[in-house]
Amino acid sequence: MITQQQNLAEPAVVQEQHDRFQGVTYQHGKWLARIEKDGRSFNSASHTHLKTAALVYDCAAVTLFGAAYVWRNLPDQPFSPELQALVRGYLERAG
């Protein structure tokens, strides 16, 4: 059971975590990666873990802009082939 104090503190904790990672937002209890290019917005599915959404953002940014031009949230974390395929799917569906 969550206490009233914990419930009131949650937005501050979410905001603090959100501020650590570029391109990641918190909506409806889940983390979402969001990136824009040429006036179009690309959104991932929602993720339970903040770092997963941050890694999805990183992969999308590298795919859209190139590794030399991107500041990554998790620069030491490699992209698995599964993650790359997932991100390509997000980007293709977005148009």
Score class of each variant (00 low, 15 high):
Gln15Val: 03
Ala54Leu: 08
Leu86Ala: 11
Leu32Asp: 04
Leu32Pro: 07
Ala94Lys: 10
Asn73Ala: 08
Gln27Lys: 13
Ala33Gly: 09
Ser80Thr: 01
Trp31Ala: 00
Lys51Thr: 01
Gly89Val: 03
Phe21Pro: 05
Leu55Glu: 00
Ala60Tyr: 06
Leu55Met: 07
Ser46Trp: 00
Glu92Thr: 13
Ala68Ser: 14
Leu55Thr: 03
Gln17Lys: 14
His49Gly: 03
Ala68Arg: 14
Thr63Tyr: 11
Ala12Ile: 06
Tyr90Leu: 09
Ala67Trp: 07
Tyr90Gln: 14
Thr52Pro: 00
Glu82Leu: 11
Leu8Phe: 02
Arg72Ser: 11
Glu92Tyr: 14
Gln6Asp: 11
Met1Phe: 06
Glu82Arg: 14
Thr3Lys: 11
Tyr57Gln: 13
Gln22Gly: 10
Phe21Glu: 08
Gln4Asp: 01
Leu83Ile: 05
Thr25Ala: 03
Ala9Pro: 05
Arg72Ala: 07
Gln22Ala: 14
Pro81Arg: 05
Lys37Arg: 14
Ala60Gly: 15
Ala61Gly: 10
Leu74Gly: 05
His49Met: 06
His18Trp: 03
Lys30His: 05
Leu83Ser: 05
Thr63Asn: 12
Thr48Ala: 14
Asn7Pro: 00
Gly95Lys: 15
Glu92Gly: 12
Leu91Phe: 03
Val56Asn: 07
Ala45Gln: 12
His49Ser: 09
Arg20Lys: 13
Gly29Ala: 08
Leu83Trp: 02
Thr48His: 13
Asn43Val: 04
Met1Val: 03
Arg20Pro: 04
Val87Gly: 13
Arg20Tyr: 06
Ala60Asp: 07
Val56His: 02
Gln27His: 06
Leu50Asn: 08
Glu10Phe: 05
Glu10Gly: 03
Gln17Phe: 02
Val56Pro: 01
Tyr26Asn: 09
Gln6Cys: 07
Gly66Asn: 15
Ile2Val: 11
Asn7Tyr: 06
Lys30Phe: 00
Ser80Arg: 01
Cys59Ser: 10
